[in-house]
Computed example of a mutant assay.
Amino acid sequence: MTSLNDRRFNITFVNIILKEGSLQDDEFKLLEQMMYVASQKRNWHVPYEIITEKIYKSNFDSNIIESVEQKLRSYEFKNVNKEFVEKVTKDILRNVELAITQKVYIDKNVEIANSKLEEINHEFEEIQDTKSKIYTDFITILGIFTAITFAIFGGLQLIGNCLGNLTGKITLSKIGGILIITSVILLSVYLILIALMIGLSKLLSRSEDRRYKFTGKVTACIIGTIIGLFLIGCLFVFL
């Protein structure tokens, strides 16, 4: 198990070999001393975990491999066994290359995961908006149908009240007055129904081509009938 002193040694060693840019003379001498100490230690190995951790936490790219190789092979370690230096150099370069490859792979997958998460969040927001819109449309449609019901029954009740006032002797004047009032009520109810149906059509169909449109002939017949009742009532009242 690595002791505290060994870990500090390894951290310093890694910081030197992964330093960006070239090393100063004193740094090369310190690296030579550390290589000598490492060669004298039993069971010392390249601190792979520290190298990997530092690469993961930094913004190193594949150029760091050439930088590390240049540091380790451009300086002549006079007091260190050449075979040891070559072995450590190869192990460090392989570890750095592996860590860089892993980092690129992980970063790519994290980016893909974040992109998918953003898409899911966007779809979730759209679902929430659609859900809220459905609730709003449902309440609006329910209100429109309620208004239609009140308009129809209210109009019929008014007509019933007018007919109920026919007491005593029935004359053409009274019948004419009821016809005038009835035609006005029917026209008002029909106009209210037209407005409510158009509003309902706009809610249920966003496409202009699929919206409900009143048939011209039917509308003309209904309005014509109401106008006819109004004119007949006027004739009964004023003649």
Rank of each mutant, 00 (worst) to 15 (best):
M1C: 03
M1N: 05
S3C: 08
L4Y: 13
D6S: 14
R8H: 11
N10I: 06
I11A: 07
E20H: 07
D25Y: 13
D25E: 13
D25N: 14
D26R: 08
E27G: 03
F28C: 09
F28L: 07
L31D: 03
L31M: 04
M35G: 08
V37E: 13
K41N: 14
N43A: 14
W44Y: 15
P47N: 11
P47R: 13
I50A: 05
E53W: 05
K54Q: 15
I55D: 05
K57L: 09
S58N: 05
S62M: 07
S62L: 10
S62A: 14
S67P: 06
S67V: 15
E69N: 15
Q70M: 10
L72Y: 08
S74T: 11
E76I: 15
E76H: 10
K78F: 08
V80G: 08
K82F: 09
E83M: 10
E86M: 11
V88M: 10
T89P: 02
T89E: 02
I92S: 07
L93C: 13
R94G: 12
N95P: 03
V96C: 06
V96F: 07
A99D: 06
T101N: 07
Q102N: 14
V104S: 11
V104L: 11
I106E: 07
I106H: 08
K108D: 13
N109H: 08
V110I: 13
I112Q: 03
I112R: 09
A113S: 13
N114K: 15
E118H: 06
E118G: 12
E118M: 12
E119Q: 13
F124T: 12
E125F: 10
E126S: 08
I127G: 04
I127T: 07
I127W: 08
Q128M: 11
K131F: 13
K133H: 10
I134D: 01
T136N: 10
F138Q: 07
I141Q: 03
T146W: 10
A147K: 10
A147P: 00
A147L: 09
F150L: 13
F150D: 05
F150I: 11
A151G: 03
I152G: 02
L156F: 13
L156M: 06
Q157R: 08
G160C: 06
G160T: 00
N161G: 06
N161Y: 05
L163W: 01
L163H: 03
G164C: 02
N165Q: 09
L166H: 02
T167Q: 04
T167V: 11
G168H: 06
G168T: 05
I170F: 00
I170R: 02
S173M: 09
I175Q: 06
L179V: 02
T182C: 02
L186A: 02
S188W: 00
V189K: 00
V189Y: 01
Y190P: 01
Y190C: 05
Y190A: 01
L191N: 00
I194K: 04
M197G: 05
I198A: 04
L200I: 07
L203H: 10
L204Q: 07
S205N: 15
E208G: 09
D209W: 09
R211Y: 11
T215G: 12
T215M: 11
A220K: 15
I222Y: 05
I223W: 00
I226A: 04
I226F: 01
L231D: 02
L231H: 01
G233R: 00
C234I: 06
L235T: 07
L235K: 07
L235P: 03
L235F: 12
L235V: 14
V237F: 01
V237N: 01
F238S: 04
